[in-house]
Design a protein around this nucleic acid. Sequence first.
DNA 1: GCAATAGTGTCTTTGAGACAGTATTAC
DNA 2: GTAATACTGTCTCAAAGACACTATTGC
Lengths: 250, 250
Amino acid sequence: MTHSAPPAVPRFPVSVTVDLVIFTVRDDALHVLLVERGKEPFLGGSALPGGYVRPDEGLDEAALRELREETGLDGGRLHLEQLRSYGDPGRDPRGRVITVAYLALGPDLPAPVAGTDAARAFWAPVGEALRADSGLSFDHGAILADAVERARSKLEYTTVATSFCREPFTVSDLRHVYEVIWGIALDPSNFRRKVTRTAGFLEPTGERRTSETGRPAALYRFGGAAVMSPPLLRSGDIAGRGAGGGSGRG
Amino acid sequence: MTHSAPPAVPRFPVSVTVDLVIFTVRDDALHVLLVERGKEPFLGGSALPGGYVRPDEGLDEAALRELREETGLDGGRLHLEQLRSYGDPGRDPRGRVITVAYLALGPDLPAPVAGTDAARAFWAPVGEALRADSGLSFDHGAILADAVERARSKLEYTTVATSFCREPFTVSDLRHVYEVIWGIALDPSNFRRKVTRTAGFLEPTGERRTSETGRPAALYRFGGAAVMSPPLLRSGDIAGRGAGGGSGRG
DNA sequence: GCAATAGTGTCTTTGAGACAGTATTAC
DNA sequence: GTAATACTGTCTCAAAGACACTATTGC
């Protein structure tokens, strides 16, 4: 469309969809929202939630609408960003379909909402979803893999990890997000130093949260800053240590 | 299209295009390849090169083809990556057009090739192209702005800056790329230390290049590593210093 | 010699890694 | 008291910032 028409072929049958990779941290694993397909192709298989972009809506708008339909959430409370587009001919057996994938991050969300299209939606640990034998439909396995890598690297240089925490949250809650998504244990002491001293990352509420055991932890809200510089690098992990890693020893 | 059909609207007239943001460093500025539009809408205006995706080709494939058509280059020598997709209704007055934007980086390229569709292509400094009054057609101003930001941040944590240098190149050539794209002066000494000690960034050829003035500089090839960790941060600039910044003083 | 660019060395500062040690809760 | 988690402090090391200084060219 930009310059004088290239050799013919202005228009042919194409559909444009948005697909959502919705991540949350539950228990001790990163989970993704999947739907069970109710029709061919891949009937009964698992896939990312998504749907057609409508004639009158933008891509971000379509993604927000799908998010609302699938999770019942108003999107304002979640982080939502475009991941990338996938459009290999043959990625959908029914014809040429270009999909724009979005990445959504949110705190442990209510189980998929009934009364919507997503009645057959469920949370799956990404590890399982990525295993070849559980094979996602279409090219959704590749999309999911790209989304995982995007999420992992965004934790390094941005503050999006807070999107996984319901406010108010503790430093340990936040560290747990990093540990689950990176799959490594972080030193609690150094992690605390980094996140509390990064301007705009955390904002103390002044409250504390008491749990069954241990000293009550200070509570924080997200502080509004988008990026962390210098970043919190993955390379900075601890080789041999359990995820709960205590500090003292003497 | 992933789950049971959402409320109607499976298919409506859409076109899918790829648009290219092709960057190069010429003289002392980042330049982008633009084309003068030969037809309505925006006849006579400037736009990013691009074209329709064909029924039988993937998105990356379409981008590579357009790149070849516009620059006469085989893409194998350039860095090419998907930037993001743009699909607001109304972004093209002729109808619904989704475009997948790609970012291409290359060494100072031969002036746009004749004999192709791109006869009216030309290099423009991005500063000028972004100015509101020179207004690019469609939403290409926004796409270009996103591309600049992507390029700037990729210099921090990857080795793509080498894509702007024709091999073999000197450390100063590479530093010049950073300085032009970030718009700041870097300390020659510290820059050298960083790039020469980052494993896989530079590979010495053993040769030197003599110029009109000064000591001949050692020549390097790209070393194959994709990322730099820790990154070379933009924040690490020098407040008041000219771009040529000499070292000695006594 | 001078101007200009390439390259080395080194002191200082920042921040991360690796802990030891203290604080506050439930039991 | 013990177990458990929260938090503080500090020593060390890696790497960046800020230079001074030396090297090699053309003139």
